[in-house]
Nucleic acid binder design. Sequence first.
DNA 1: GCTCCTCCTTGGAGCGATCCAAATACTTCC
DNA 2: GGAAGTATTTGGATCGCTCCAAGGAGGAGC
Lengths: 329, 329
Amino acid sequence: MTLEMVAARAGVARQTVSNAINSPELLRPQTLERVRRAIDELNYRPHRAAQALRTRASRLIGYGIRPSLGGVATPVLDEFLHAISDAADQAGYRVVLFSAPPDEELERYQQLLDEQGADGFVLSGTHRGDRRQAWLHKKGVPFVAFGRTWTGRDVGDWVDIDGAAGTAAAVRHLAALGHRDIGFLGWPKGSGAGDDRAQGWHDAMRDLGLPVRNRRVETPTDLALASQAADRLLDGGVTAVVAASDALAAGCYQALHRRGRTPGTDVAVVGFDDSPVATMLWPSLSSLAQPIEAVGRECMRLLLDRLNGVQREAEHVLLPPELIVRDSV
Amino acid sequence: MTLEMVAARAGVARQTVSNAINSPELLRPQTLERVRRAIDELNYRPHRAAQALRTRASRLIGYGIRPSLGGVATPVLDEFLHAISDAADQAGYRVVLFSAPPDEELERYQQLLDEQGADGFVLSGTHRGDRRQAWLHKKGVPFVAFGRTWTGRDVGDWVDIDGAAGTAAAVRHLAALGHRDIGFLGWPKGSGAGDDRAQGWHDAMRDLGLPVRNRRVETPTDLALASQAADRLLDGGVTAVVAASDALAAGCYQALHRRGRTPGTDVAVVGFDDSPVATMLWPSLSSLAQPIEAVGRECMRLLLDRLNGVQREAEHVLLPPELIVRDSV
DNA sequence: GCTCCTCCTTGGAGCGATCCAAATACTTCC
DNA sequence: GGAAGTATTTGGATCGCTCCAAGGAGGAGC
């Protein structure tokens, strides 16, 4: 099924059919109608590769995925992929996945560009020392990141969750319930998102005149270690804990269970991500839900601008997470 | 960067460069070496769209994703996507995502085929009444499914987890520990995977001469409902529960907690999927881990056969899950 | 009726690769 | 040394689409 065949059927030239699809305003209404009917009858769709070859645009958006690191690392990735894929589809684009192992990440991006396998990229999991943004920017490749530029010069568009606003909201909520001794269970310093979430807790505590000293502990995302870290907070006598993730909150649950205390009743706990785990824990975990759908939509909006050659300053979108209150507070 | 430019640099004809890439055995060693050097120096990569146009093969594999239904529905999808994407990359293919809302699912597959946007498909989440396999088979489109053909004539290749083997293993493990009263917490009849898992429990119980009557309850994946369903099992006096998913197992945990009993100590519980939740629950949940990496590899192996035009009978691969024993038994 | 102008429609060229068949280079053997 | 045969290399055509510039139809104005 080609343009030529549609043209024959409609009794017009090849180019006229092309115009009917790409610049319908050029055609006389009755011609347009005739061509459209032929397209419908034959169920014609342009050949993507031919379009791509001629227009030098694949209408594909690259999304580099790192090898799975045990699964826990990316609890929200799934939903995010859904969101950008949906949004891309509506704009006539599609998302193409490619493997990007950390050690040869940029080479893989380069490869996709060389073979014109993608017109732009969506990055996720941006981190300190991430070279992708600067690299893509320098090459003038359209891209958008889910996650801020944590280091170096801030280049390109990004969309991110306002982690600080989230943990601050959690602190205020807990303070309103009478808690004064609120600890923070976070990741080791140096991770962008983690530091951001810690900052929100810290600032909100300060604002409320609550003590922060010795009330912040750090741990990697390992349940046993997280649980031990939570122990240190509990030993310090906190009555509430804000965690940097639901996984860490689960570690806190374990620490409480071990000492025969009940989350929610004895010590309040708030997680982050509102992952499926939150409802499955007992008692159900209050958590900060990330508006992933909205993040995906915003990402595509910004990226489409760039793909369409819109010239504008870099735009940054910061979306607040929503505190979902459950039985743990 | 085109073939022509590489050819100019190497001092040969366009076609010779093409042969160097696609049929190196045709070239004289020294010519091959010269061309290869030119390719390296210029960092040349073939233009995908041009290749696709000429060879009528996009080297893209379609993966239709349904709108996210709240996230819980697909705990393993993430890992699976990683797996097939990695395997595809190694074979020179890439995975392209497209939205396939249930009501116009086949139209979207058709669209991708019409525009030659994919050479084959990977299906997941096959279910009773799934029309995709028969439809693709009839059209002669290469595809492979993660999940059996649950209804109708069994067509095409598939890879699946042997759910029955998994639950049977769980039952045998529990029986070996002395449990005789083992309940099954499953989904409503009619879901392929759910019935399969129930069957494994049922058959193993029979084999061991253990009672099954009134020891199987059904519930949708909703924590409150699952918890009530678990109550009915516990009221019946079971000493162990095998659940069709970790989410249902979590419901069982809640039922136990509510009546002041401890999972593992008072009643043994085994989940299914070995999702991140399993380690986060307290006590940690024993579960049946799906070898998703292997599923992905096998899927790609079968699909690549079809893409390469290998003629053979439909192949079915059934991989056993592995029982991960934790504190809940 | 004719010119001029605008609005639509059309054929030719080319995007970058591979298929194909023909041309050339190199061996082998007498 | 030359014919015959095989091994390499080459140029032309083509995939389906869009760019471009030129061609034709139709209407306004004199």
